[in-house]
Amino acid sequence: MPQASKPAAKQRVFITGASSGIGLAVARHYLRQGATVGVTARRLAPLQALVAEFPAGQCLPYQVDVRDAKAMQTSAQTFIQDAGVPHIVIANAGVSRGTLTSEPEDIEAFHTVFEINVFGLVHTFQPFIAAMRNAKLAGQLVGIASVAGIRGLPGAGAYSASKSAAIIYLESLRTEMQHHGIAVTTIAPGYIRTPMTDVNGYRMPFLMDVDIAAAKFADAIAQRKRFVIIPWQMAWVARILRIIPRWLWDRLTRNAPHKPRINL
């Protein structure tokens, strides 16, 4: 009599910035698929509300700021103890704010944006890499960048530069992890309907609903893609942006609208 095949192991996912927007939608997507999901955010109340939507023990909340490397290490260790080594780690936490180098009060905002959008990636991934290698899980590290990292946008120096740095950092990480069987996926969204984009007072082409975006993110992750821009229309826009000469880019952006300068 042939032996019955073993049931597939339940997927384990760890996501930062899961209190709202893309992170919340992606967390809900995996939870609905039956995965055990660790979620982090600076605000605990939205995480507790998410936990209440699903069976006990399926969603594990951690109140932590991705700027705090030691706190992220503690959260990672706790998740591994409670649920096991994650198959997927998604560094989603990010902030966006209009910034102007000419304004002294924006210096702090530049620091904050980089600390969360760039160093937050490092603080998220670092505690899991050794555990993934030891467990031989063929794990996956996923970083959420942005199409805004393709070219510098006026009034968004901090955000565009941080997302450009994220794209290059994730590429470096991918080349490092290939020796350990750990995939690295970079997702660069265009405009997704979230609280982050709700404050924009200008037209946002190809604006996508966040739940649709979350499903497309999960599909790209499942395919272990190296780099993907979502939605697909923005991928074509990004190709054009890369080849526009600098003199033409300056002319096109001369009177472009600026992202609001709001408190983070």
Rank of each mutant, 00 (worst) to 15 (best):
A138K: 15
P86D: 01
F125G: 03
C59T: 10
T78K: 14
I90N: 08
A135T: 01
L100S: 14
A93F: 01
M132W: 07
Q81F: 03
Q126N: 13
M72W: 06
Q58T: 13
A135E: 09
T101R: 11
L60T: 08
A91N: 10
T124R: 11
G57P: 09
T101F: 15
Q73K: 14
E108T: 11
A130K: 15
Q77W: 08
D65C: 02
Q58E: 12
F119M: 14
V118K: 02
G94N: 02
T74Q: 15
Q140T: 02
Q126M: 13
I90H: 10
A130Q: 15
I116T: 15
Q81W: 00
F79R: 09
F114S: 04
I88E: 06
Q140P: 09
G120I: 08
A135P: 06
F119W: 14
A71Y: 11
G143R: 07
I88N: 01
R133C: 08
T101K: 10
G139V: 00
K70W: 10
R67W: 03
H111K: 14
V122Y: 14
S102R: 13
F128M: 05
I88F: 04
H87A: 12
D68G: 12
Y62C: 01
Q126P: 00
F114C: 02
H111A: 12
N134F: 00
G143M: 00
P127R: 08
L137T: 15
V66P: 06
D82L: 11
M132D: 04
D68F: 12
A93V: 00
A93C: 01
N117W: 05
C59Q: 05
Q63H: 05
L60Q: 09
A71W: 11
L100N: 13
Q77D: 15
G94S: 00
P127M: 05
P127H: 05
L60R: 13
A109Q: 12
L121V: 11
T74I: 14
S102V: 11
I90A: 03
V85Y: 03
V142C: 06
V89I: 13
S96N: 12
I88C: 04
A109S: 13
V85P: 03
A138C: 13
Q58A: 12
C59I: 01
E103Q: 12
Q58L: 10
Q126Y: 11
D82K: 13
Q73G: 15
M132P: 08
L100Y: 07
S102C: 07
F125K: 04
L100K: 13
H123R: 09
L137S: 14
D82F: 00
F79M: 02
P104I: 02
S75Y: 06
Q73F: 04
G57C: 08
H87L: 00
V66A: 01
M132V: 08
A83G: 06
M132H: 09
Q140S: 04
N117M: 02
D65W: 08
V113I: 15
V85M: 05
G57I: 02
F114G: 05
S96M: 13
F125V: 00
V113N: 02
S75M: 12
V89K: 06
S96P: 01
K136H: 12
T78D: 15
H123G: 04
I116C: 07
D68I: 11
T101E: 13
M132I: 11
F128G: 08
